[in-house]
């Protein structure tokens, strides 16, 4: 089973992350995110309710989403546990990722 799934609806891509995003599966995630380039997306929403672990490999995939998918894409991180939230703070990712408990379409 894959640790992520991507669902695009209109200008929003919802990326559900489950369990671990690490060096073994982050390259595949980045590959899938690449397919979102040129789709005129406005938001990439990472659903992290069931995410328990993310290493720098996973963070690289997320910064890739911000840098490559579109000029004005807003990246969200939704429902992340405190320790995941802290990883985003530690690396300064909270400066460009909107971190929220819930997401309303």
């Amino acid at each position: 089973m894959s640790n992520f799934s991507i669902e695009v609806s209109g200008t929003v891509a919802k990326v559900t992350l489950v369990d671990k995003i690490d060096t073994t599966n982050a390259p595949a995630l980045a590959e899938e995110l690449k397919k979102l380039i040129g789709q005129n997306l406005e938001r990439v929403v990472f659903m992290a309710n069931d995410l328990k672990y993310i290493s720098s490999a996973g963070l690289r995939a997320i910064v890739f989403a911000k840098q490559k998918i579109g000029q004005n894409v807003q990246v969200y991180l939704i429902g992340a546990a405190k320790e995941i939230h802290n990883v985003f703070k530690m690396t300064g990712f909270d400066s460009f990722v909107k971190i929220q408990d819930t997401y309303e379409d």
């Binding site: 290493s55 720098s56 490999a57 963070l59 690289r60 910064v63 890739f64 911000k66 840098q67 990246v75 690396t91 400066s95 460009f96």
Partner: peptide
């Protein structure tokens, strides 16, 4: 630095 200018090496 802003996300657009992030160099993603060295983060680990």
């Amino acid at each position: 630095v802003p996300a657009e200018e992030r160099n993603i090496g060295g983060l680990g």
